[in-house]
Write a protein that binds this DNA or RNA. Structure first.
Lengths: 117, 117
DNA sequence: CTGCTATGTTCGCGATTCCCGAACATGATG
DNA sequence: CATCATGTTCGGGAATCGCGAACATAGCAG
């Protein structure tokens, strides 16, 4: 079997828990749009998944796509395809294991970003 | 008196505690070089100040200048000029007040970055 | 099967940012 | 004054960002 992160060559790549890098995660969370995404996902925990459309973000569709990709490659969210929708889930367990307290700090700040929109 | 952040027009600008923005601070910390700077400054707390040269960073002088500026404008460090040296100090009190726990989370990670150099 | 819609990605372009070396500015030192 | 030390600023090339347009795929209606 393949111990790497992706199932096939064209599958979405998700870094392993051990591969998460603090600066990469911080850079991913250090953007209002992405932080808002994380806060919304935290509100549907656990096991809550949201399609990209449901976020009503103030940026274009292609920019949203890029933000989700950044979050996924940083290891902040997990994405899976279901039909034509791409469902997003917060990687709470992995983030809590590697950087305990970070999400609890970031999520309220993300809610504040949303409140300002 | 002037309630703003800078003393004169040409002085270094430092955002007020109330003006600190979470995403800006996170973006500032989300870079290995800058996180290493923060960790080094934390090791000389409290009241410890370090000149830019003392960091031995793996980037050019002009790039260092830019990183210090990013940290200062994000409100992470405070800079003051003494002769030809620019002394840097961590804004621990302001950061702890606005984002409690963040520095305690980031500093060990910054030390790890340095250890990997 | 043939459109048609809904959801996201990819592509190409202009704008911004990043990093570098070179040059500059300023203060200390002899 | 001449020299050195510490940082900043400037200009250019590389990388990134955000956008609209076009594309790809799944689901649905007929």
């Amino acid at each position: 079997m393949d111990a790497m992160a992706s199932r096939t060559a064209t599958e979405l790549l998700h870094p392993d828990r051990a591969q998460l890098r603090f600066t990469t995660v911080l850079a991913a969370l250090g953007d209002p749009v992405r932080l808002a995404i994380v806060a919304r996902l935290a509100d549907v925990e656990p096991d809550g998944e949201l399609a990209c459309t449901t976020f009503a973000l103030p940026v274009s569709k292609s920019t949203q796509s890029g933000h989700f990709k950044t979050l996924r490659e940083a290891g902040v969210i997990r994405q899976r395809d279901e039909g034509t929708r791409r469902l997003n889930r917060l990687r709470r367990d992995d983030l809590d294991a590697r950087f305990p307290g970070l999400l609890d700090l970031a999520i309220p700040q993300g809610r504040q970003v949303i409140a300002g929109w």
